[in-house]
Amino acid sequence: MLRSAVILVRRDVRLAFRQGMDSLMAVAFFVLAVVLFPFGVGPEPNILARIAAGIIWVSALLASMLSLERLFQADYEDGSLELLVLQPIPLEVLVATKVFAHWLTSGLPLVVVAPLLALILNMAPEGFWALMAALAFGTPSLSLIGAVGAALVLGSRRGGVLLSLLILPLYIPVLIFGVAAVDAAAEGFAAKPHLMMMAGILLASLVLAPWASAAALRQALE
């Protein structure tokens, strides 16, 4: 089972790098979206420092949602999803594996780029490690929760817009605690309680989301 999982991760990562440069596009979107804000709210360093955490988190959220639609869609269209479902490994494990590959190609790059963006938004340096830790806990949760939506909209009309309507409300808790952790650290308070909440959200979604997305995939392929 572990071997199949490793093979699947390798396949998905390779596919992501070879076709369309998915992860690069997500990162480019993330950077561009963040860069828009100084023009929108004005370039005063104090204001930017105050809202930096929120800007980065909202942009990361939208960027990770951008690539979600492709999580199952391509495999669904060319039929390889049906072959994957027929494999002798549980569908829940398969979903978790695909989500992990998705996170590697679209979540992890965001974590890496985030400190750079925090720098140009004039965020207090104390907040940097909290931002990376919060994103490291938060982006896998986003991928996991998003997988449920991606599986649900398979084969529907206007899947992309529908996906954002379904998923964005469920992203709100991650956003709240993610921003709270960074703000606390930047202002010299403890970020640990918020980070532990985020770890809790990650664990809960790690248990529940593969199960729900597997159910959604089963009914999509019926």
């Binding site: 449920v148 649900l152 909209v153 084969g155 529907s156 009309r157 206007r158 899947g159 529908l162 379904l166 729900a212 159910a215 959604a216 009914q219 999509a220």
Partner: peptide, 16 residues
């Protein structure tokens, strides 16, 4: 209401 087949819509939205 996003699916052509109403039973698919019912199942998917039930999971949601």
């Amino acid at each position: 209401s996003a699916f052509d087949d109403p039973t698919r819509g019912a199942r998917a939205s039930a999971i949601l």
